[in-house]
Amino acid sequence: MNGKLYISNTMNGKLYISNTIRSSEGQKRAFFIAFLGAMAISLSIIEHMVPKPFPWMRIGLANAITLYAFTLLKPREVMLVVLSRVIATSILIGSFLSITFILSFSGALASFMMMYLFYTYLRKFFSIVGISVIGALTSNTVQLIMVNILFINTRLSYYFLPFILLFALLGGILSGWFSRFLVENI
């Protein structure tokens, strides 16, 4: 029980954790879900701490973890990573079940769906950076639509759309680069 865990992503894409105790495939996957979830939680909390003029001006580094998770886990397990990240982050920050939580939850779910579709069916045409951009765009647009449906209900807030898309594009490229770095080096 006192052994270290060595994680590696072998050439054929299978998970490989060597341990002094014997562990089943299911245990390895569970470990990976928890590990990636923890990485995503810490990254999104760090991002929340950075002061920014608008709440939607974020890089979305946690999104990079989701993308990295796609290369290691089944889609269902990636969804677990995403859900645990959103819920745990909101509990730690103190916005659980508040407006912020509803927005980030819907945005994260929608971007997960889009990234899942693009990753499984259109991987020939899009690299991980493109899929990250898709996720960021979806997340921000869905959040704006949710704000409109639930709270403000005027066409006026669509005036934010070009700004939001611009920052989603930049953030998506950045976090895509980061996840590419993760995929190729870890």
């Binding site: 045409f125 899009f126 493109g130 951009v133 594009l169 490229i173 590419r180 770095f181 190729e184």
Partner: peptide, 23 residues
């Protein structure tokens, strides 16, 4: 800590260009 070259595919360039045009 190295990155492969030419990782971006055609779809990425098309996507980024489309989004820039949309913006």
């Amino acid at each position: 800590l190295k990155l492969k070259r030419n990782i971006l595919k055609t779809g990425d360039y098309i996507l980024i260009l489309t989004v820039l045009c949309l913006i």
